[in-house]
C-alpha cells in the first residue's frame, strides 16, 4: 500500500498503433484471448455477439474496385480520459478509472449485466457474455493463472492486461523499486504484434515511445471530436485513413449513399 506522505507519480498508460504497419494478421486478437482467458466462440456466436477485447477492423477508402484501398485498424477499449462515457453510467460502480494508471477497469464480479455501458461506448469496445464461458475438454488447463474467467451475463473489455500490470508491480516491489513510480510492462497484444505496430507505455513519460509517436505527425485518435480523450493513438501517412477516424457517416466517397463497407 501507498504510505500517507508518499506522492504517487500517476501514469497514463496508452498506445500508439501504426496503421501503416498493421497487416491485419490477427495475432493481437489471439494473444489477447489467450492472455485474458476469453473462451472460444460458442457455435452460435457471430461477429455481433462474440467477445474480442481487441478487434481488427478492415476499413477502405470507399472507392470501387480497383481503386479500393484498405487498411486495418485494431480497436480495443480506448480508455477515455475525459468524462469516460461508460464509467458514470454504471449503476453499481462496476466500472472505474484507476487514477494511478488511467486504465478504465471493469469488475465482472460487480457487474449486473444491464449493458448500459455498452450502449454508452461509442467504440463498441465492450462485450457481453451471452453464453456460459466454455472451453473444449482439457483446454481449460491452458488458462492463464493470472486472470479469472468471467461468468455469463456480465460485460467485459480490454483493461490493458491488468494481470500483467499487477505482475510487473509485484516484480518491481520485489526488486525494491519505489512503489510510487509507474511500472513498465507490455500488454499481450503489443507483445504479440509480429510487426510491432503497437507501442505501449506511459503517455506521461515524454521520452517514452508512445508519447513521442502520439506527438508526431500523422497521429490521430478515433472520434476525437467527442472529446472523450482516448488514450489509444493511431498513426497513418494516408489522408483517407486519418479522415476515417472522425469522418461523418456515411464516409465520404462511400460506394453508395447509405451503403457502408461490409468488411467491418
Amino acid at each position: 500500500m501507498i504510505g500517507p506522505n508518499k506522492q504517487i507519480r500517476a501514469a497514463r498508460y496508452g498506445m500508439t498503433i501504426d496503421v501503416d504497419r498493421c497487416t491485419g494478421c490477427g495475432a493481437c486478437m489471439v494473444a489477447c484471448a489467450v492472455e485474458n482467458n476469453v473462451p472460444p466462440a460458442h457455435a452460435g456466436a457471430t461477429d455481433r455477439n462474440g467477445i474480442t477485447w481487441i478487434r481488427v477492423y478492415k476499413i477502405d477508402n470507399g472507392l470501387p474496385y480497383p481503386e479500393t484501398r484498405s487498411a486495418f485498424i485494431p480497436v480495443m477499449c480506448q480508455h477515455c480520459g475525459n468524462e469516460t462515457p461508460c464509467v458514470h453510467v454504471c449503476p453499481q460502480q462496476a466500472v472505474d478509472v484507476d487514477p494511478a494508471t488511467g486504465v478504465v477497469g471493469e469488475m465482472p464480479q460487480r457487474c449486473l449485466g444491464c449493458r448500459y455501458c455498452m450502449a454508452a461506448c461509442p467504440y463498441h469496445a465492450r462485450y457481453f457474455n451471452w453464453w456460459d464461458p466454455a472451453w473444449p475438454k482439457g483446454m481449460e488447463k491452458t488458462l492463464n493463472p493470472d486472470v479469472t474467467p468471467r461468468m455469463r451475463g456480465v460485460v467485459e473489455k480490454c483493461n490493458f492486461c491488468h494481470g500483467r500490470w499487477h505482475a510487473a508491480k509485484q516484480q518491481a516491489a520485489a526488486e525494491g523499486k519505489p512503489d510510487t513510480e509507474p511500472v513498465q510492462y507490455l500488454p499481450a497484444c503489443a507483445e504479440a504484434c509480429p510487426i510491432k505496430a503497437i507501442q505501449f507505455g506511459d503517455l506521461n513519460d515524454p521520452a517514452g515511445a508512445p508519447a513521442r509517436a502520439a506527438q508526431s505527425g500523422g497521429s490521430f485518435r478515433l472520434l476525437e471530436k467527442l472529446h472523450t480523450d482516448p488514450k489509444i493513438y493511431y498513426r497513418s501517412k494516408r489522408d483517407w485513413v486519418r479522415a476515417s477516424a472522425n469522418a461523418p457517416h456515411p464516409f465520404a466517397g462511400q460506394h453508395e449513399a447509405g451503403k457502408e463497407n461490409h468488411r467491418g
Partner: peptide
Amino acid sequence: DVGQPLRAWFTFWYPNVHSMLT
C-alpha cells in the same frame, strides 16, 4: 433482461450516484 438478476441488489449496496440508471 439483466445478465445477473441475483445481483440486482448491488445497485442499492454499491450505488453509483452519478448514474441515471441508479
